[in-house]
C-alpha cells in the first residue's frame, strides 16, 4: 500500500539531494577559485552559502514536522533521523567551502608560494568522498559507504604531507612566507575536515540501511 507518508519522504529525499548538489557545487567552485586564483568565483561561493543555510532550515523543519505528525518507526524513523544528521553535515561542508574561498581571497593578490601539488590531490579526495557518500545515500549502497569511511586516512596523510612541507620547507626557513603559507595550511585543514564530514555521512548511511552503528566503532565495518 502506497502511503501518503511515502510521498512526504520522497520530498524530503529530493530536498536532501538538492542540498547535496548545492554543497558539491560550493566545494568544486572553491577549489576552482584556488586553482585559477579567481576572486569572482571565490566571492560567488561565499554569497551562495545563504541558499544552503536556508535549505538547511527548510529540511530541519520538514523532519521535525514529519516526526510530529507521523511519529515514524523502524526504517522510516532511521531515514528521517539520518536525513537530519546528513543535512547538518552538508551545511558544515558548505561552510568549509566558504572558508576555503575566504583563504583564496587572502592569497589571490600575492605571488604563489609554490606550485600546488598535494592540495589539488587532497581536494580530489575530498570531492570524491563527498560524491561517493551522497551516491551511497541515494543508492542505499553500504559497500560504497564503507569505502568512503575507509578512505579517510588517505586524506589525513595528504593533509599531514602538506602541513610538513609548508612548515619545514617554508615557514621554518623564512618567517616572511607565513602570510602565504598559513592560508594554504588552513585550506588543507578545511579539505581534511570536508573528508571527515563525508565520512560521517557514510557512517549515517550505514546506520540508515543496516541499523548498524559504525561511528566510533571501526571494528563494525
Amino acid at each position: 500500500m502506497e502511503r501518503h507518508f511515502d510521498e512526504e519522504l520522497k520530498e524530503l529525499n529530493k530536498e536532501i539531494l538538492r542540498m547535496s548538489l548545492l554543497t558539491q557545487e560550493a566545494i568544486y567552485k572553491s577549489i576552482e577559485s584556488l586553482k585559477n586564483r579567481d576572486r569572482v568565483i571565490a566571492t560567488e561561493v561565499i554569497a551562495s552559502d545563504k541558499k544552503v543555510d536556508e535549505l538547511e532550515l527548510v529540511i530541519d523543519e520538514r523532519c521535525i514536522d514529519l516526526i510530529a505528525r507521523y511519529q515514524p518507526m523502524a526504517t522510516d524513523l532511521r531515514f528521517i533521523a539520518t536525513a537530519m544528521k546528513i543535512n547538518a553535515e552538508l551545511e558544515r561542508i558548505a561552510d568549509l567551502a566558504v572558508d576555503i574561498s575566504q583563504r583564496v581571497l587572502e592569497l589571490v593578490d600575492k605571488p604563489l608560494l609554490k606550485p600546488l601539488i598535494d592540495i589539488p590531490k587532497l581536494s580530489a579526495v575530498a570531492q570524491g568522498m563527498v560524491r561517493d557518500a551522497i551516491d551511497a545515500l541515494v543508492r542505499k549502497d553500504v559497500e560504497l559507504a564503507k569505502n568512503v569511511v575507509l578512505s579517510d586516512p588517505d586524506a589525513d596523510k595528504l593533509r599531514n604531507s602538506v602541513q610538513e612541507e609548508l612548515i619545514n620547507d617554508y615557514m621554518a626557513r623564512d618567517a616572511k612566507t607565513a602570510d602565504r603559507a598559513v592560508p594554504l595550511l588552513l585550506i588543507a585543514r578545511h579539505l581534511e575536515r570536508i573528508c571527515d564530514h563525508a565520512t560521517n555521512i557514510a557512517e549515517d548511511v550505514i546506520y540508515m540501511v543496516e541499523a548498524k552503528v559504525v561511528k566510533h566503532h571501526p571494528e563494525e565495518l
Binding site: 502511503r3 518507526m73 523502524a74 522510516d76 524513523l77
Partner: peptide, 18 residues
C-alpha cells in the same frame, strides 16, 4: 523492534504499510 526490526514483515507492519 521499533528502530531496527529484524524481519521485513515487522518493519512493514509497524510503519503502517499493511
Amino acid at each position: 523492534i521499533f528502530t531496527a526490526p529484524s524481519d521485513q514483515r515487522t518493519d512493514g507492519y509497524i510503519r503502517g504499510e499493511f
